[in-house]
Amino acid sequence: MDAIGQPLPVLHRVPGASRPWLWWLLAAHAAVALLWWQLGWKAGLALMVATHLACLWGVFWPRAAMYGPVLSHLPASDRRVWLTIDDGPSDDTPALLDLLDACGAKATFFLVGERAAARPELVREIAARGHGIGNHSHGHPQAWFWALGPARMRREIVQCQETLRAITGCPPRWFRAVVGHANPFVSAPLRDCGLARVAWDVRAFDAVRADPAGVVAHLESALSPGAIVLLHEGSPHGRNVEMIALLLQRMQALGYATVLPEELERSV
């Protein structure tokens, strides 16, 4: 139940077996053919372009649910937010764990399978400190994740899942798509692994911006109860720990605390 006694919605939504996007696409193409026949090629072509743009929106917009359910905000009514940290484990991980401990904060680390396999002791330490661990693909194919075919998509998700389960003894429940992208082939392996896809509603491009004050100011301006905050570790600019330290300081000043979705699920 939430703060006013209302039941909370289900947060962990694994994709189902149905493919609503496929039926939508078939209906759209039937409409294109009909319009082309009735009104001519200009009208038909315009509708065809529009339907394809809608499909691309489902690929590139992280909160789009065209290719399966996606969680982008928590149903918290008080000042609690979900910190999510992508791309580890990395050299930043030990410092981040100490920082979170010092601030009494919890986060979910969305880990890359190859990096986890290379540094399993860091993965185990994340779990031992009470933080969440999520699946962030096995090889982090940043440039091409959106265009992966069914075999490669399955391999990226399943191999990371198996790697993290072998290290911690517990399979992750959450999946963060690389760059937040999705396509029609993401849902089947998520369903088979029992994974729910997570996006975000607060970000400041901290993986590429080397300005901690500017990054945190942007994050602060977008904070709200239940926000899912996208953060990174191990970025080339080397300032992620500094950014997260400053963010936690500002959150404390504003009266914000952290929450993991499992804590909200237990209160349903």
Results as ranks from 00 to 15, higher is better:
residue 3 A to R: 08
residue 5 G to F: 14
residue 10 V to I: 12
residue 11 L to F: 04
residue 12 H to K: 09
residue 12 H to G: 02
residue 16 G to P: 04
residue 21 W to G: 10
residue 28 A to Q: 09
residue 45 L to P: 05
residue 48 M to V: 05
residue 49 V to Y: 05
residue 59 V to G: 09
residue 63 R to A: 11
residue 63 R to T: 07
residue 67 Y to A: 03
residue 69 P to M: 04
residue 71 L to R: 00
residue 73 H to S: 08
residue 73 H to P: 01
residue 76 A to Y: 11
residue 77 S to T: 12
residue 80 R to S: 14
residue 84 T to K: 07
residue 85 I to F: 09
residue 87 D to P: 03
residue 90 S to Q: 11
residue 91 D to K: 10
residue 96 L to E: 06
residue 102 A to Q: 09
residue 103 C to V: 06
residue 107 A to N: 12
residue 111 L to I: 04
residue 112 V to G: 02
residue 113 G to D: 14
residue 117 A to I: 02
residue 121 E to C: 02
residue 123 V to N: 03
residue 128 A to M: 08
residue 128 A to G: 10
residue 129 R to H: 03
residue 129 R to E: 10
residue 132 G to N: 04
residue 166 A to G: 00
residue 167 I to H: 03
residue 173 R to P: 05
residue 174 W to T: 00
residue 176 R to L: 01
residue 177 A to V: 07
residue 181 H to C: 13
residue 189 P to C: 05
residue 198 V to T: 06
residue 200 W to S: 06
residue 201 D to A: 06
residue 207 A to P: 03
residue 212 P to C: 15
residue 212 P to M: 15
residue 219 L to W: 06
residue 220 E to S: 13
residue 227 A to W: 15
residue 233 E to Q: 14
residue 234 G to N: 06
residue 235 S to Y: 14
residue 237 H to K: 11
residue 238 G to H: 14
residue 238 G to Y: 15
residue 250 R to V: 10
residue 256 Y to D: 03
residue 257 A to D: 08
residue 259 V to H: 02
residue 259 V to L: 07
